[in-house]
Structures are given as C-alpha cells and as structure tokens.
Design a protein around this nucleic acid. Structure first.
Lengths: 224, 224
DNA sequence: GAAAATCCTTAAATTTCTCTGAAAGGGAAA
DNA sequence: TTTCCCTTTCAGAGAAATTTAAGGATTTTC
C-alpha cells in the first residue's frame, strides 16, 4: 500500500511519512504541487495526501489536473482552515475526503484506510497492451493461455510501463517510483528487472517487447 | 459473521454484544455516531445494529452517510419510540429494518439473521469450490464421504477464500475481517491457519489447494 | 576506429517472507 | 478443578525475491 504525501512543510511531511510507515504503508514525499502532480500521475499510489497550500501549484489545482487527466487515485486533502468553502471547493475539484490540521494520527489513518479500501476494490484488475494482460491481483502476466508469475518489483515495473503505453519511462523515474527516494538502488537494479521481464516476455512469445531508448529509458513496443 | 453494535448506553450495548456472541456472531462496539460510521465504513461487517439517539452523529445521519459513500452493509435501526415517522425517516435514510426498544433477544436475532441473509452475501448453508464443500452450520469441510471438523477461525478463513473463489485475499484483509481491527494478531497467525487448512485439505485428498502469492496473499486453486 | 559511456545478462550473495512443528495460553464444559 | 479444544506464540528451516557484482555487448564520442 503506497501513499504519496504532498506537503511543503518539511516537519509535517516527515511526521506524516513516519506515521504511515509505522502502520505498514510505503510513503513517498513531494514538496511542491508540480512535482506532486508528476508523482500522482504515475498511478502507482493507492492514496494521495495533499496539502492545499503548496508552492508552484496549489492542492485544488493538483486534484483537478489529476482528474482532468483521468487519474482516479483517491485524494485526501489537508487544509489548515476549517472552512466549509474550502471543503466544498476541494470536493468539487475531485478530492475524495478532507482533513483539517491539526489532526490525530488515528484520524489520519482511519481516513487513509477508508480511502484505500474504497478505491482498492474498484482498482483496475487488469491492464492490457498488445497481446499482453497484466493481472494485478494474481500478479501474473498473461498472453493467451500462457502466463507467468511476476514478483512485486517486476509487477510494478510492468505496471508503470503499461500505464503509460508506448511512452518512454526514464530509469530515474522507475527508481523513484518503485524503489522510492530513500533507497540506494542504482540504475543497474532497473536494468536487471528489465532483463527479467524481457525473458518472461520471450517465454510468453508475446508480440510486445520492451524497447530501450539510450540515455532516456524504456517503453513498450507492440511489433505488429 | 461479524456484527457492529453502535450504541451509547453501555449496558444495552453489552447486552446486545453478549446475545450476539452467544449465538455465534462476532461483535464489536462503537459508542458514538462518528466512530460508528468509521467502523461501518470499514466494510468488514455483515450487519450493523445502530441506535438512533447517539452522541456526535445520530443514527439517521450515520446510515445516510454510509449510503452516500456507497457502503451497502445492512443496517438495523434501534429506536426508543414506536413512531411511524421515525421508521419512515430511518428507511429513507437507507436503513434496512428497524426494531423498537425494548425487544426480545429472539426478535433481535431473527432480524439480524434476516438482514444478513438478505444482503447479496447470502448466508449459504453450504459453500462449494472444486470438490470441496464447506458446511457452515456443521463447521465441517467435506470432500465426498470424508469430512473434517473446522475450528471457528479455520472456518472463517476458509469461508473468505471460498466466497471469493480463485481471488487473491491479502493477509491484511483476512486479519481485518476475521481478527478485527483491535486484535494484535500478526501475519503469522494467518499463516498458521493457512497451514492448518492445508493439512486438512491434504487429509481430505482434495483437488483444491491454497496457493500463495508472495507479498499479496492466498487464493484457492482447483488443480484440474 | 578506438576509447568511453551506457546497457545487458547472469550468477552468487543477501535479505525478506513464508511455512510448520511444538509448546504455551485461555476459555468453556464436565 | 480438571480436561479438552481452540488459539496464539515462537523459532528455525526453507523458499523466493531482491541486490550486488562482474564481465560482455552495444552504442556514442572523439
């Protein structure tokens, strides 16, 4: 269960992350609205905790941009003021719930749980590209009758690639989104997993392959 | 079968819980409307017994908030007054049935049974998967002539797996739904019960097995 | 065309997760 | 109280996923 915390006050952000981690979540941070939106759009998060007041792009805009781009990740809005107007505006922009600062950790956790559950059951069960389908819940990659099991990391790499069909994804982006900011994984880790995936694609005999764009990253190719 | 009792009068709440437990239900308590709503939204309950008069948020609001948030858990409303207006209002808010205080335990149980049946979950007397059948009332797992007795926890784990045939169920979800939020059971508890069940499946010589999906959970497999 | 940078592949090493037996703990019934 | 059954706890073995490391392949740069 992966949560994104978009918050510019470093101390608060770290507190949030800590609370989340202590309760079994994986949590990443973004300190401004632009970077927050980028991360949010990756589609790898189960819940996004979003402050309203942010540098570069405020929380309202971040949600509404996410929704405009068809990203349905549940968003929990953090607001300093307990104003109905803010709440209404937030929900209108597409947020799913909101929480007024300050708050008890329990309340935060309860709301995150509620959001992740609500969505969790509707979350895409299956992603497809070319002749491939990625069965999220079974963590299997299938082509026709054949299917192979994927480990968690393999899954996430594949999911990211299939979520942005054809688009080039940089290694940095994969590292950041899958290994997180705190990991000391290197480019080679990504390369290794790409290699694993290629082997499995070959085993499946899929039309789809993972193409390399030197110095840039990887993307899915459907060799029709 | 898990029931949530939302009631602020401690004595009544405890009586209710006791009656329920004596009749094979698992029951949790919430003493005010806000907390009740939180619990209700968790989606782990089969029936919710809800007093109308509550601190913080009255019963009507709790149901209507639940329904607004797409939670369809059956709700039995408890009201002190026998007024048609209340009944109508309650049902309008999304409650499924109502009961006037005071009431006989038998009546309570009858209504709880009715509600838990009504909901799509359908309290089947017998669940089947592959060559297995799970006899709920006899708490036995059978295959052909052979059968083994299951303890309560074993039953519930098996029931959850058989209710979602083939689907992967996370350990987290099993813990939440069977052990509840307040328990400090750990992943290992689930693992132990899975192990117990596997042993019994083997004893029965069933085609069915419980598959592990690492880092995700378990699912039933029918090895045809 | 060679050197440098980047990427690929594989195998071993490491870490993490899971399984399961044994034993202790708890509660209800006898 | 004692007994019995269910449940939890613990710990080590086992399995699987992930990381590390190193040499080979490929492309870019000069």
């Amino acid at each position: 269960m992966r949560v994104l915390v978009v918050e510019d006050e470093l101390r608060l952000a770290e507190t949030l992350v800590e609370i989340l981690k202590e309760n079994g979540y994986t949590a990443d941070m973004a300190a401004d609205g632009d970077y927050g939106l980028d991360c949010a759009m990756s589609g790898i998060y189960d819940v996004i905790i979003l402050d309203v007041m942010l540098p570069k792009r405020d929380g309202f805009h971040v949600v509404s941009d996410m929704r405009k781009n068809k990203n349905q990740t549940p968003v929990l809005l953090l607001t300093a003021r307990d104003e109905i107007a803010d709440k209404v505006h937030g929900l209108d922009c597409g947020a799913d719930d909101y929480l007024t600062k300050p708050f008890a950790p329990e309340e935060l956790l309860a709301r995150v749980r509620a959001l992740s559950r609500r969505q969790g059951e509707v979350v895409l069960e299956e992603l497809t590209f070319g002749d491939l389908s990625l069965r999220l819940s079974a963590s299997a990659l299938c082509r026709g009758e054949k299917s192979v099991h994927l480990g968690l990391k393999e899954m996430e790499v594949m999911r990211l690639l299939m979520n942005n069909p054809g688009q080039v994804i940089t290694k940095e982006s994969l590292l950041l989104k899958i290994w997180g900011t705190e990991s000391d994984a290197e480019d080679n880790n990504v390369e290794v997993y790409i290699s694993f995936l290629r082997k499995k694609l070959q085993f499946l005999g899929s039309r789809v392959s993972i193409g390399t764009v030197r110095k840039l990253g990887y993307h899915l190719e459907d060799t029709v």
